[in-house]
Nucleic acid binder design. Structure first.
Lengths: 248, 248
DNA sequence: TTGATGGGTGTACGCCGTACACCTGTCGCT
DNA sequence: AGCGACAGGTGTACGGCGTACACCCATCAA
């Protein structure tokens, strides 16, 4: 046994084999939330799960909020990327059902995602690529914008709050965290990289401001709400008139 | 000054004038959440607001969960009752926009309502009367059932989770709290008063079980999801084909 | 007069997130 | 070979949380 080996052996005894990293922390957090519920996920409990003292976690995540951000990105990353195909309806449908499957796998995720104050990169990426499907399907940027709003939390699995007006659903007093999807492109290019990284989102945000209300800084939430509402009511009425019935 | 008056004066000095009751506690809680955000609403902070020691609150609410239940009922009670009129679309529209206005007044409410494990009476009442509008508008019980699901959280302001499959969004491990809207009528009449109190909901729940899957105990969530999804996709495609554009 | 009762009080416990100081093993540099 | 920086795990401590439990006291019916 060389001295190196001896040292390594001793090290293995004192530290916990794999030296813990952000990736492992996030994975353990997701697993813990899956099995014991999000309410039971505390820094202390998570540390215990990793055979480590609570404060050790803070070398890998800044605080619990950032942990939740990381968990969000982890599960959103599980959603299948958009497939290829000529039929845009089929493509969105598949994507959204994939998102749904992911959220069913992680029942805590919807609540956590909606509680984030700003959209995480993975969420932006997801929204952007989803918007892209509509655009490539021939919907105008204008229509795509409203369509994305209309999908709401149920169909995208989340996203609702990302587009909402600043204080409409958050923890109360938090001002616009300068990261809402609309404000990405609304308040001028704060980071020139954003528009290139999320081209469709940038386009959508721009589409809601080329009118007269350039100063608004956001889109008209009330309009979006009524748009979705009337779209559904139209659909309901049509189904009623044609005597629709579920084929159960 | 009579002895009674003296006693009362002394009492007023020691106790805080109005002797605190559930009503006052709930109103103060709502006000506090409105002004400082739901995260800052703690039993201790609320007690302080009422010039009382924290434990005093527990004489009026069992615990914090019940406090949140009470707050839920309070805000849901602010929603306008359904109006009268021959045009059902107009009536639902007005109602839902009223709900939206209430939720905008209390930005914390949507999150709180969705976090309740079981529906509170006021929520059931709201859902029931809303379902009633559709029924009187000529929609079948079957269609109304799916329509209610399709509305999702965005349009009803909440309700999503009430219909969801037990563990799909809650705090993790909690089993079906035997109070989901579907299970109200699904698992036989647990309380004979429920069906009379919420006739439309009872009817809707029944409509999802008269088929072959009597044993299911709940409706097919996946079906409801795809129903709403396809309804929206239909609408989107129609708008695209007719070259729809917002009149901004 | 008295005893029950409703409602406010005080103390204490066990959780939580996390600031801060500390220690130790590793590695690049001289 | 020696040394300083640094990455990463540790230990202690603080303030806040929800709430159990024992208490006190004013009111009022009997």
């Amino acid at each position: 046994m060389t001295r190196q080996e001896a040292t390594q052996r001793a090290t293995q005894r004192s530290t916990q084999r794999t030296p813990l990293n952000r990736e492992r922390v996030l994975r353990a957090a997701v697993a813990l939330a899956d099995t014991t519920g999000i309410d039971a996920l505390s820094m202390r409990r998570l540390a215990q799960e990793l055979d480590v003292v609570p404060m050790a976690l803070y070398k890998h995540v800044a605080n619990k909020e950032e942990l939740l951000d990381g968990m969000t990105d982890a599960v959103v990353g599980e959603i299948d990327p958009p497939g290829a195909g000529p039929d845009w309806r089929h493509v969105v449908r598949a994507r959204i059902l994939s998102a749904r499957r992911v959220l069913l796998r992680h029942p805590w995720a919807a609540r956590v995602i909606e509680s984030r104050t700003g959209p995480t990169p993975a969420v932006l990426e997801y929204l952007d690529s989803t918007a892209g499907i509509f655009r490539e399907g021939g919907l105008s940027a204008d229509l795509t914008h409203h369509v994305m709003h209309a999908m709401g939390s149920r169909l995208l699995g989340f996203s609702q709050e990302l587009f909402a007006t600043p204080g409409s659903g958050g923890s109360g007093e938090s001002a616009d965290p300068a990261g809402s999807a609309d404000s990405v492109a609304a308040s001028g290019p704060p980071d020139p990289g954003l528009a290139e990284r999320y081209p469709y989102i940038a386009e959508l945000a721009a589409a809601s401001h080329d009118g007269d209300s350039v100063v608004g800084g956001g889109c008209d939430d009330q309009f979006e709400f009524e748009f979705a509402l009337d779209l559904l009511l139209d659909g309901f009425e049509r189904l009623r008139d044609q005597g629709w019935t579920s084929a159960r």
